[in-house]
Amino acid sequence: MTAAILTNNLTKQYGTLTALGNLDLQVRQGSIFGLLGPNGAGKTTLIRILTTLMRQSSGEAFIEGNDTRSRGRDIRCLIGVVPQENSLDRYLTARENLELHARLHKMDAARYRQRIDELMELMGLAGRQHDFPDTFSGGMQRRLVVARALVHQPRVLFLDEPTTGLDPQSRRSVWEYIRSIAGSMTIFLTTHYLEEAELLCDRIAIMDHGRLIAQGTTQELKARLSGDTLYEIEFDGETERYAALLKNMACIRSITVKGAVVNVGLEHWECLSEVVSALNGAPVRRISLRERTLEEVFISLTGAGVRQ
């Protein structure tokens, strides 16, 4: 595997507090990599080190083979960053914000003008490019921040919670664009929207208390969860009656009722035939396997308590 991002025993300490502890990470070139974790897990510290805004206490970190401790200027030419905050210049128009970014990267004027035209059109901002960001909606500002990070065509794009605060339409617009550029650059994504990570990412890492506690594809992470085989049974009436019937069956290990839907946990999937037989003649609308969710994996690994 050719690694676009590589860390070895990466550690960051603030006095007696260990924000990152001996973190080993590899992100394949051209992939979309998701980093999940509760508040205070160390995600922001990691991104600051990888984007050369902070130095580690020990260990190594490389971006496209460049050491973050000695090749910061080279790394900053290679990366694009979408921070959590909309750090736009309010005294510049949307287009001028992008032009300033291009000039800081010493792009040729003819090249960056064409590039900005393309991005403005792609982000649906062409008609507002001469307006000031303060007149934009939150979703439009967020799309402008993403466009700014892409002006110089980075090889590695860091997206730190890029869709926080966006309405569903704007979120889906950002998702679609991220999918469209997958493969042409490496994308490193942090998010609290677990469905976002599941939809977009090739691989996902979950961290807590400064350490990686799980890595893999979505399916690999879900496979870590053991327990009952879960089915949803939706009734067209008499739900409580049939829930009571199912509760007394030996092969059912757990049962919950929510409206017209009964969720049952079976000892093994072969028990389903016993359930179907027991419900012969019942007003069943559907029986479906309930797949484990990434949220269940996340909660099982990091706990359900609220973090400060």
Rank of each mutant, 00 (worst) to 15 (best):
D236L: 11
T16Y: 12
L294K: 08
G59C: 09
G34P: 01
Q129D: 11
D117M: 09
E238H: 15
T163I: 08
G183C: 11
G259W: 11
T18L: 13
E198G: 13
P38I: 00
Q308K: 12
L200G: 07
C271N: 03
L88A: 05
L225H: 12
R111Q: 12
I255H: 10
L289V: 12
V81Y: 11
D74K: 14
N8Q: 15
V306Q: 09
A182N: 08
E267G: 06
D167P: 03
Y112W: 09
T239D: 05
R71H: 13
G34Q: 01
S273V: 12
R171Y: 07
C77S: 10
D236E: 14
R90S: 12
R95F: 06
L20V: 06
G265E: 11
D131W: 04
V27D: 00
P168R: 12
R292W: 03
L6W: 14
H268P: 04
E296T: 07
I187T: 15
T163Q: 09
T51M: 06
R172P: 03
V174N: 00
H209L: 11
T186V: 10
F136W: 05
G281V: 13
L266H: 11
I63L: 05
P162C: 10
L23N: 05
T135N: 13
E270Y: 09
R90P: 00
S180C: 11
D236V: 02
D236K: 10
L212N: 03
R55H: 13
V174W: 03
E176Y: 06
V145H: 01
A205N: 12
F136T: 04
T256C: 11
L246G: 10
A182F: 01
E234N: 02
E96K: 14
V146R: 00
T7W: 05
P162V: 07
Q56I: 00
V261T: 15
R113G: 10
A94E: 09
R171E: 06
N248C: 08
L98M: 15
R142K: 14
T191E: 01
A214E: 02
P283M: 08
G183R: 09
S57R: 11
E274W: 04
Q169L: 15
T218C: 14
V82W: 02
D160P: 03
T190H: 04
L125S: 00
D131S: 12
T218F: 04
Q153S: 10
Q114H: 05
K106G: 04
Y193D: 09
F158C: 01
H209T: 11
A4Q: 11
N8R: 15
E196P: 01
G210K: 09
A126C: 03
L289F: 14
E220Y: 07
Y112I: 00
R224I: 03
P168T: 13
I187P: 01
A182D: 00
I178F: 04
L266N: 13
T256W: 03
L221D: 03
R128K: 15
L301M: 04
V297K: 01
A214L: 04
G42V: 05
A223P: 08
H101Y: 10
F62V: 03
I252P: 09
Y193E: 04
L212T: 05
G303R: 08
R95D: 05
E267C: 09
A3I: 00
A109S: 12
